[in-house]
């Protein structure tokens, strides 16, 4: 039996016969998924409240990685300070963009908003080129996390383990914010009926701004965390943004848990898929998206569109 499987897919045979290998692939899936979750959560949050599909999210991620490089490698600041600086910088950029540009088009059609974010992609890509040039950079792991940790079953890179932990931490933080704070209740109300909220005297624009800033900070933070294993280079945003789209659509637009599960699924499908069918890695993500959309068009955790639309 196992010989037959080996003929069809050597990778699958290894997975079945070598539990240690299977375990490592599971860890690969989770750590990759968690890094993507941090970024995708921001995208999903922004969509949930502002109803804008933010194409510029990928560029924000790229800026996060670049800021991380400048702060940690050029100024020699500690790793975590770099990550915070990246999140902070993106928060500021987002504040500026929201106040000057986004605010003008909340009433416009989705299409126009999409195009606006596309314009930001074009411009910020050039801005990055002006600031950081066209070199490819490399960011070091934090000293304490450059090696591997013994998990009993196997050794696994410490930094990736940290990603596995930080993902759930961000999930819980966001969940707590959304469910337990006044801000969270306001944002949820804003997703449902902003006119009513405004009539009740709530400053809706401030809520919008804060959501956009926090979502973008997550992109910057995610970019900073990715920078040690995904070197900051021009164009690094192009593939990432599509991956994030897949994740948030699979999970359900605007759903926090959705992006968490979507990111995990993405990691699992990518890693196990690459082992089992090594020639088809380019299409796993899109197959996942297709299958989910065909069965449950509004995503795993999303709600069906209202009014038959």
């Amino acid at each position: 039996m196992i010989d037959l499987i080996r003929d069809l897919s050597p990778g699958l045979a290894t997975l079945l016969t070598n539990p240690q290998f299977a375990f490592i692939q599971l860890m690969n899936s989770i750590s990759q998924g968690m890094n993507l979750f941090i970024i995708a959560a921001g995208l999903s949050l922004i969509f949930g409240v502002l109803k804008v599909i933010n194409f510029a999210h990928g560029v924000f991620y790229m800026f996060g990685a670049y800021v991380m490089y400048s702060v940690s490698q050029e100024f020699g600041a500690p790793f975590w300070l770099g990550a915070l600086a990246a999140a902070g910088a993106l928060g500021l950029i987002a504040l500026l963009i929201e106040r000057t540009l986004f605010r003008q088009i909340y009433e416009a059609e989705h299409l126009m908003q999409l195009l606006l974010t596309f314009a930001i992609v074009l411009i910020m890509g050039d801005v990055a080129k002006i600031i950081w040039g066209t070199d490819q950079y490399s960011v070091s792991y934090p000293a304490s996390m450059s090696g591997a940790t013994d998990l009993g079953v196997t050794f696994y890179p410490t930094y990736r383990l940290m990603l596995c932990l930080i993902g759930p931490v961000i999930l819980i933080l966001l969940y707590w914010f959304a469910e337990r704070t006044r801000w969270g209740r306001m944002t949820r109300a804003a997703t449902q009926d902003r006119e009513m909220l405004a009539a009740l005297g709530v400053n809706v624009p401030v809520i919008y701004t804060s959501v956009f800033v926090i979502g973008s900070m997550l992109a910057g933070f995610g970019g900073a965390l990715a920078s040690p294993f995904s070197s900051p280079v021009p164009g690094m945003d192009a593939t990432l943004i599509v991956d994030c789209f897949v994740i948030v659509i699979v999970g359900g637009l605007g759903s926090l848990w959705g992006s968490f599960v979507g990111a995990l699924l993405y990691g699992l499908v990518f890693n196990f898929g690459s082992v089992i069918f090594p020639n088809a890695q380019d299409i796993f993500a899109f197959m996942l998206l297709l299958i989910v959309l065909l069965i449950r068009p509004w995503g795993l955790f999303g709600k069906p569109e209202a009014g038959g639309h």
């Binding site: 290894t14 290998f21 690969n28 990759q32 990736r160 890693n271 690459s274 082992v275 890695q281």
Partner: peptide, 14 residues
């Protein structure tokens, strides 16, 4: 691995 891939862990472990 596909060109421009960001995650190589699955190949490294193989």
């Amino acid at each position: 691995p596909k060109l421009g891939a960001t995650d190589y862990n699955v190949f490294i472990t193989q």
